[in-house]
Amino acid sequence: MIIAKILLGTAVLGGAVAMQDGIVTVNVREKHPGGHHIWVAAPGVLVPLGLKFAPRHELEEQMRCSREWLPVVHAALRELQKSPDAIFVEVQTAREHVLVQKSWGRIQVDVDTDDAEVHVAVPLRTAQHALAELEELQPAS
């Protein structure tokens, strides 16, 4: 009984820690017959963790190219954290519908075209943590 309680407690605490950054979801559905449907949901806390195991050389190369834009992304994420939920961009044409919004502390991008439907949601906290992780890769200037 005690072991069961400890396991349950560990599971609850582990779940709480894993979910503190929210969940990253990616949902892609191809509309043609036999098209793929990919749905991934992962705790946001895994993203910065995953970056630790990504090929360092590749990441450093990417960071060298995007170095000057990091403060911009940082500032955008910081301000977006403070802003209320809203639709930031909506584009509606005869063949596609694109929506970029903030909802429940997540940045959500929804694209619906004749060929496919793509929905991506990333918690802002996850994006900030991932960015901090990437910034550590920067060579000191």
Binding site: R78, E90, A94
Partner: peptide, 20 residues
């Protein structure tokens, strides 16, 4: 049935981005 674009941007976000 024509195209439609709507952008809503908090000025604080624009300020934060511009200043960096």
């Amino acid at each position: 049935k024509g195209d439609r674009v709507r952008v809503n941007l908090p000025i604080s976000v624009a300020e934060g981005v511009l200043s960096s």
